[in-house]
Every structure is written in C-alpha cells, then in structure tokens.
Write a protein that binds this DNA or RNA. Sequence first.
RNA 1: GGGCGCGUGGUCUAGCGGUUUAGGAUGCCGGCCUGUCACGCCGGAGGUCGAGGGUUCAAAUCCCUUCGCGCCCGCCA
Length: 595
Amino acid sequence: MKRNHLADEMNDAMAGQEVILNGWVHQLRDLGGVIFALLRDHSGMMQVVFNETISAESRKLADELRFEYCIAVRGIVALRPAGQENLEMKTGKLELKVNKLEILNPCDVLPISVSQDGGERKELRMKYRYLELRRPEISNKIIMRHQLLIFIRNFLSERGFCEIETPLLAKSTPEGARDFLVPSRVQPGYFYALPQSPQQFKQLLMVAGFPKYFQIARCLRDEDLRADRQLEHTQLDMEMSFVDRDDVLGLIETLYSAIWKEFLDYDVSTPLPRIPYKKAIEQYGIDKPDLRFGMKIINLGEIFADTGIKFLKSVLDKGGNILALRFAEQPLSRSEIDAVEEFAKEQGAFGLAHFINDNGKLKSPMAKHMSEDETSKILDMLKPGDIMFVLAHEGKAGYEIMGQTRIMLAKKYDLIDKSKYALLWVTDFPLVQWSDAESKVVSEHHPFTMPIESEWNEFLERNNGEPNPDDKSVFELSSQAYDLVINGQEMGSGSIRINRPDLQRQIFKLLGLTDDQIDSQFGHILDAFSFGAPPHGGAAMGIDRTLIQITGDEAITDVIPFPKTLKGVDPMMDSPSPVSNEQLKELHIKLDLPE
RNA sequence: GGGCGCGUGGUCUAGCGGUUUAGGAUGCCGGCCUGUCACGCCGGAGGUCGAGGGUUCAAAUCCCUUCGCGCCCGCCA
C-alpha cells in the first residue's frame, strides 16, 4: 500500500475521500473497542482510528501496534464527532477511519523516546541519532541547514560567484592545526593531509583567473573538541580577486543581514560596526566581544597616575594598567562581591578591588588611602549604589581578566538582551603572535595574510631588509585580517592575501622557515604568485556556528546530522576503529602503540 | 595534559553508611474499557546501582583507580 497523500495535506474538504498514508506510530490510545493512533510522516501527523465497525480485521491487527511501528493505512477521511476536535493539531478536526492496516515493519523497545524529549543522556542520543532525528524539532534543524545552504548558494550565485570543489586529499603543511593524515598506498611512506581549509586552493583559483569563488567546504582539524568545535566542520569558503577589504566585508555583511532577515525576520543594520583588534581588547578584553550588553572596560590610569596606593603605583610604574568595570545593575552583597573577586583570581588576577558609591560616600577597602581628588573623580563615575571592580595588572592579561569578568557578570546577573543579535567586525588583527608551545613566532591568522604594508615596510627598514622575528616590534604589526563576531562568538574570519612571491617568502622567513623548507612545502604557491597573481582576499564563515545562532542552540552537534563526542568518537558507527593487518600492510604501516 | 560535573531496570529519576527485599514515573508483558489526544483502571516481569579495588560488622551511599559522557582551560592559522 503505497501512500497517495501526506498527513499534512489532510483538510476538511477531503472528508469522505479514501486515502492511503504511510508513516510511523507516534502515539497510541487503546480504548478497547476503538484504538486511536497518531500516524506521523515527514510532513506532519494525522489521527487514525481502528474500529471493528469499520474493519474488524484492521481493528484486530491494530492490537499489535506499538510506538514507532512503520505502517501503511488505507481509510476514509472523516470529520471528528462534534466536541472531539483537537485544536492543538493542524489536522485535529479530522481523522482517518482505517479499513486496511498493513504493518510494514515492527519496532523494538525504544532506547530513546521519539514522541517527546525524554531527556536521555547525550551518549545514548548520539548512538541512536537516527531515532532522535525522527523528532520533528530535531530534523527541522537539519532541514533548516539545507535551506541555509540553498540560500547562500543562490545569494552568491546571483552575484557572480562560482562554486568550485577542491581536493580532500591535500598536502600537509607545517603551519596551523594538526593534520589528519591519509597514507598513500602507491607511494609507500607518503601521506596526504585532509584539508584544514581550502585556503591554498582558493588562492590558486584566483591566480587561475576566477574572479569570485565559493565552496561549502568541509574542514578537518585534529585538535581537541568543544561545544562549538568538531573534528570536521563546514565552512562557507570564499575568495575574490581585484578587491580590497571593504569589498569583502561589504559582501559578507550583506549576506549575513539577508540571512538574518530570511531566517529570523531580524533587521541587521549595515554596515556593521568595525572595531580594530586593539580597541576590542582595550574595551572588552577579548577579540570577540559580545555587544549585546555594555559595561566596557574603563582605564583608571590617569586618575591614579600619582597615587599613593603602593600596589597601584607599582603596577603603573611597570607599564601596567588600572582597569575597571562599572556594575550598575543592582547592589551586591559582600559575598557576591567576594565571588567576583574569586572569579577574577581564577582568571589569573592577584586580587580585585572595588568601589561603591554609598549614597555619595565612597566605600572601598582602598578608600582611606585615596586622595580627595581621586575619591571625587571615582565618585563622579558612579551613581549611588553602583559598584566598580578594579584590577591592577600588567599587559594584555589584565584586559583579558576584565573581559572574562565582564562576561561572567553579564551571564550571572542577566544583563544580556536575548532578543538582540550583535554582529560586528573585528579588524586589524596582529600579524603574528608568540607561541609558547613552539617557542617561536606564529601567524595570528595564517601565513598568507597581507600585512598592513606601511607598517611592514618600516619593520623591514628597521631590520635592514630582513624579516627579523627577534625584533619585539614584530608583535605590534597589524594584518589585513578580520573576524565576523556574532553575540560574542567568532563566526568566521578572513583577510586580504599576499599575492607577491617576495613578500610571501619574507613572511615565511619571519615564521622561522628556511629557504629549503619554504621551497619544498610552499614552492607551488610561490611559483603561482610569480605568474601575475592578482590582488585577492576572502573569508571563511562557520556554517555550524551560524546555524546555532539561528536556532538558539548552544552546541554545534545540535545542527550536525551525525556528530561526534568530545573524544572524537562516533558512538553510532563506533568509529574510529581498528583495521586489519592486511589493510595496514597494504599501506606499509606498522603500529607502535602506547603500552 | 589539567580542572569541574554526571553515570541507579529499556528510558528518566529518588535514595547519598543500616528503616531497602533499591522507591517512583514512563516504556514492556497480561487483563478490562467504543471517543481518546501525555486516555484511564487492575495485575505482572524487569536492576551484578558504569567497571575494578579498598575502608567497614554493614557500601548505590565513604575512599582510591579506571572507563564513558558533558562543560571549561591548554590546543584550535
């Protein structure tokens, strides 16, 4: 019995018509003489009725029905008796009087509930993900993912972008995340790397003369997982030639405001705010500020420039900062204030002082050591009842402690306007940063990022034309890189790229690569740049993260059809798994397992 | 690699040294019920309390180790 209608198509006008529906038993109510079931298909639900006055045979077979049996029913669409309508249901005024039932496939006792959220543990839900996906609330996210991808493809295609696939079997390079390796059978001892992103391929497409490229690309990185990080994730990868930074930012913010309008009916005003990296750190203590609430970091350096308070003075003398957060939402108890200090200490602070405007009088552990001038200036900044948390700390770490404290306070005291979406760009990222793990200078974004050229040229001049990583001013250099941030989450990043082989080689040298390493690992791209490579730039946007912003979920596993656990295991397929000795032998691999 | 939390019949959960033969809900099995919609009522089966070790007269409960899951730090251009 093949279906000729879907549950969702049933309407009053069809009363009296005979139809066949296929689907699953979503709910069962056995009243003895009559059995009601909710039949669910991908479109919706329909109540079906088994009654011996309609069909004794079907009524008898219906005794066997249980949750999630896969069935086919044929029957007459009918209006429910007066007073029996279910107004909560789209088809609630109707029912199907079944004259033939066929059980297509029975269903074992369910390990997780399908008809509702049974609150099962994550590991179980992952193992039986295909059952969880039967729930419309869950599958709708996967359908929305499809709709988002279609929307993006149409948007970019209409604007002259060409979707181009790039290889999955690519090459391992020394920069960046840990690679997933794939052994070559034909070339013993050689490995492909799965792409961390199509970065080099897309730049080579620019060299090839494609003006606008995009790809919905899977990116793989063998690093530890988080709620917003899987081993593989999907990026909207894009690149354009003959453009400057504003062209790229303009296109992406137009796309994102269109997505927000389409999927959330939310008006994002463009152009988006653009905050230089340095300012983001100084004002929010983080490179991905959440602008749904205020409470910017305040620098009290000037007020305390000549202070007599020793620990403040000594931090200032060492070039540190005195930073503050003004908390004006509600008075806090002594223990609540202590909890804030405790949090700051966990973030690395030595301590966290505070000022309170106690009806025009300054209340603070430091009050009696402060000058009149200092006291009045602080009081001027506080309304009665306001609390100001104060941190004296050196370097970027001080801003970061305050940034984390700012976020903690906002979450704990509900300062975040959940109806708001705060989209912004953070621009002018540092070109490089220091890696403690590798004890060397590494790219902040990636090694193909164009520096801000005036700064770069001055840096070279200072170092006699050599890209000297030991010149500490290297950390002051900015790049033409940018991040899109939404509600405090990094949504994607991009940059204007280097397109000259000489500059690219200098950057590699700055990162500590020798000429030999550069030639063997990046020779292809330097070659390519030497054949008239056009200026170009682009970005890559996280599709999974974009989706959880739209759905309001907290983990990207919610919008991935078959996600993996935090240990990188797929409990459903039970991967990764051992392979046979024959397979290993074919690949010329011998195992050297830890104890 | 480090920190925090969780793990009890199919599933969710109570119990957190002895009142327990581990309680409840739901699902499952059997019975009753012709207008339910989380249908209802009656009865029943189902547990090595994640695993291993220890403390104790006595351990689901306390301690140690270990495994799994989640969240965070490190890590992730």
